[in-house]
Write a protein that binds this DNA or RNA. Structure first.
Length: 463
RNA sequence: GGCGACGUGGCGGAAUGGUUACGCAGCGGACUGCAAAUCCGUGUAUACCGGUUCGAUUCCGGUCGUCGCCUCCA
């Protein structure tokens, strides 16, 4: 089993060989905690969770780091608007982020450094950059000198001329070069700040990730992930800072996920089409959102819409249906196979081809059903659950899945109410009072409950 | 304007120098008191124009179209 990843540094698919044979380090840019996570924030979390799960199956030690950016001008602005303390906003938003990502089936990373806990490391790194001639102080700011780093632009494949030509913003007068970027900036009284050799101030965004990855993973590490839109300037600047300060190569494999649109349009405040994860979780189970996200290859753009979520839900219905039948036959719950099916591993090894992996799960389910015997359902279910573990789905009991209901909407009938009505309908059917039986069925259907008459009686599920 | 990604059946979405997955929808069937649900079966596609090749959806060039980045937005 050879894992192949598309490496953004070379633009090619490459066999993944970690720095150390038994240990892997991975860093993924985490959220800036000033508001609830939107579905675009969730994409890298889900994608790299699948990679994390795969790496854990292959290597004795995996260190997955995802930072929390808890100092940022957007956070300060939000605090000012809300009349709230910054710490309260970041703590609350971080907790909500953890809940939402867990609901999407993502494992917590091994460490989750907060920027504010690493200010000392950032200052130390900036001092090293000044010493080495890669940064300069100007009017209370510290700036990275792009001209000092000959290979600046290598990750995003841009020349300095192109960057300057493309610059659409006014260049701050204290910059020696329009492409220079901020490492440290002075803070006013109403802004968060830390004492530094350059006065009270706060770090620029890019240096945060460089300092935290150094502290957690060392000068050179295996995988750095994030959204494609971060390639420039964020990741480009990280490379420049880290390599200049550390004198060592920074990242061996850059992995970038593609962008997400909502109903064909870019998510933006002005269009009012932000999909907040927390809201989406009220309307559909987390696993359905997750499977929908994985039904497109991670590097391709994905359009987020209700049809896709419904499709993902149907696929899960079929798989859970098989598991439920197998358990009914087996008389107890199905234990997943110890190993993820070969075909699934092969698909994921191919640059995380999750659509292919999903197709393989359908193949397992189809084979289980097509065998035509109940005995065949049991191994198929065990295999399916093992495959689900690789993708982070099929974590529920079938009855939980089928009885899932939207949160906070009390208009649906309760489980007990449904069971009572089913009993009443059973009696009516026995008495051949089909009009009454159908009335109950239609009534429940109108309230979102589907009945299924089978040899073993009547089962129900919420639509 | 610069850089980059991408155009596969009604829809979503993989793969591939030769026979093109998988799912949804549609259609047919089984099951059922009737249904629904479920299960079984099944038709349809490689944007356009050239080139290379025995053969191109796949490789190369061009056209058209979509999208992203160049604004501390994943």
């Amino acid at each position: 089993m050879v894992l192949v990843l598309h490496n953004g540094a070379t633009g090619k698919r490459e066999e993944f060989v970690p720095l150390r044979h038994d240990a892997v380090g991975m860093y993924v840019c985490g959220p800036t905690v000033y508001d609830y996570a939107h579905i675009g924030n969730a994409r890298p979390v889900i994608v790299f969770d699948v990679l994390y799960r795969l790496l854990k199956r292959r290597y004795a030690s995996v260190h997955y780091v995802r930072n929390i950016t808890d100092v940022d001008d957007k956070i300060s602005a939000r605090a000012r608007e809300a009349g709230e303390v910054i710490g309260a906003i970041t703590a609350r938003t971080t907790a909500a982020f953890h809940e939402d990502m867990a609901a999407l089936g993502s494992l917590p990373p091994d460490s989750e450094p907060r920027a504010t806990a690493h200010i000392g490391n950032m200052i130390a790194m900036i001092e090293r950059l000044i010493e080495r001639g890669y940064a300069y102080v100007a009017e209370g700011h510290v700036l990275f000198s792009v001209a000092a780093k000959a290979d600046y632009g290598k990750l995003s494949n841009r020349s300095r001329d192109e960057m300057i030509a493309g610059a659409r913003i006014d260049v701050a007068p204290y910059k020696r070069d329009p492409a220079d970027f901020t490492l440290w900036k002075p803070s006013g009284e109403d802004q968060p700040g830390w004492d530094s050799p350059w006065g009270r101030g706060r770090p620029g965004w890019h240096i945060e990730c460089s300092a935290m990855s150094l502290a957690e993973l060392g000068k050179t590490f295996d995988i750095h992930g994030g959204g494609r839109d971060l390639v420039f300037p964020h990741h480009e600047n990280e490379v420049a800072q880290s390599e200049a300060a550390n004198g060592a190569p920074f990242v061996r494999y850059w992995v970038h996920n593609g962008f997400l649109t909502v109903n064909g349009e870019k998510m933006s405040k002005s269009l009012g089409n932000f999909v907040v994860v927390r809201d989406a979780l009220k309307k559909a189970p987390g696993e359905a959102l997750r499977l929908n996200m994985l039904s497109t290859h991670y590097r391709a753009p994905i359009d987020w819409n209700d049809e896709g979520i419904a499709r993902a839900r149907q696929a899960l219905d079929r798989w859970y249906g098989l598991i439920e039948k197998a358990e009914a036959h087996w008389g107890r719950s199905i234990t997943p196979d110890a190993h993820v099916p070969e075909a699934i591993e092969a698909a994921l090894d191919d640059d995380l081809n999750t659509p292919q992996a999903i197709a393989e799960m359908h193949a397992i389910a189809n084979a289980g059903y097509a065998a035509g015997t109940e005995d065949a359902l049991v191994p198929a279910a065990a295999s399916l659950k093992a495959a689900g573990a690789a993708l982070g789905v099929l974590r529920m009991e079938p009855h939980q899945w089928f009885r899932w209901q939207p949160a906070g909407e009390a208009d649906g009938p309760t489980d007990v109410e449904i069971e009572t009505l089913i009993e009443a309908r059973k009696a009516a059917r026995k008495a051949k009072n089909f009009a009454e039986a159908d009335r109950i069925r239609d009534d429940l259907a109108a309230r979102g409950v589907l009945l299924e008459d089978g040899p073993q009686g009547t089962k129900w599920k919420r639509a």
